[in-house]
Design a protein around this nucleic acid. Structure first.
Lengths: 184, 184
DNA sequence: CGCCAATGCATCAATGGCGATGTATTGCGC
DNA sequence: GCGCAATACATCGCCATTGATGCATTGGCG
């Protein structure tokens, strides 16, 4: 399974966990979630649905007379629900490090009802953000924004640092809430 | 040309504009630039080099006796330099909206020596960041972080907002500098 | 009543991503 | 002196992506 496929499939499974949907509606929800960043083509979505159906993760019922063309209402099977939870609990490394993929995981992490499992995933992201990395190096030493002369490269580091700090503070707050036995 | 390919190719052209390199060194530089977010496989890089060579954008000279295996030193041709400048001046929409791709554009934008052309590209990013979007909607209305109950989805919006604000302020500062006739 | 947009799904061909695997050399540690 | 990691490049095959294209229906506008 290719990596992009994994993320699209996660979104499909995640949306269907909320409610059975037909393909077209799924497409619109995925467009709302990630479409402003990176659109998904129809000819990518429908094959993905087929793959998941073939794998027994979702079932389709034809719904005649409803819309213009015969709709296929998609429902998660029990295996599909289990698979969704497994993928959310054990994301690949790229899903942790690539912001696009990470946001997709976050968007459906609530479906993993166990707070400690949720916390584990957040901690992986935190470990990644805490380690010293840069986009630019001098030998092995990661360069800070101040050390880079090119204003555009400096911008990358400035923006990345702001994101990182905002996310770390959010992660700390959220992990505190997840771990506290008295949820508000 | 597929979209991922375009970004990898941009990085290759950008690095080679600085100095002729062999494939292995290129691989390490690309890994430093984007590898902590999304690693690039060798079997993706070498075919990409071949594509660019076939298109006449770069030339390879064998460098015998240098390393362990016979190295191929890669140099940008004149067409390659022109192509690099063209790709930097006219990025696709996805390159503006997808942070990963955008950072790759930024990393090499200095090779576009014309400040007003650089400013034009930054303005496209600014226009994107300024328009009202969200990852979640109520009908057509984009939802703000405060309106979302799910803590994880709220996190996405919180982080995205922080990034957006940091980037907008950086964009404004940089555009001022680019436009001011007296560069410091 | 005719046209077009939107809805809704499907298929195909070209192309790119990438894990697996191969091959050859240098140099280091044990 | 043996093995192993790093260097350096290459190829194969599976599969995912995507633009193009097609087809059928509904509803709104003029």
């Amino acid at each position: 399974m290719r990596h992009n496929a994994a993320m699209l499939e996660l979104a499909i499974l995640g949306f269907l966990h909320d409610a059975p949907l037909h393909g077209y509606e799924l497409r619109k929800r995925i467009a709302a979630l990630t479409g402003h960043v990176k659109p998904v083509a129809e000819s990518t979505l429908y094959p993905a649905i087929k793959r998941l159906e073939k794998a027994g993760l979702l079932a389709r019922r034809p719904q005649p007379g409803a819309g213009a063309a015969p709709r296929h209402v998609l429902t998660l099977t029990a295996e599909g629900q289990a698979e969704l939870r497994h993928r959310l609990a054990h994301p690949a490394d790229v899903d942790i490090t690539d912001e696009n993929r990470w946001f997709t995981v976050l968007a459906f992490l609530r479906h993993l009802d166990d707070p400690s499992a949720q916390a584990e995933v957040l901690e992986r992201r935190m470990a990644f953000l805490r380690q010293p990395w840069s986009f630019f190096y001098e030998g092995d030493r990661p360069l800070r924004a101040e050390e880079v002369e090119d204003p555009f490269r400096r911008g990358i580091l400035t923006i990345a640092r702001a994101t990182s700090q905002a996310e770390l503070s959010w992660l700390r707050r959220t992990l505190d809430t997840l771990r506290s036995p008295t949820e508000d």
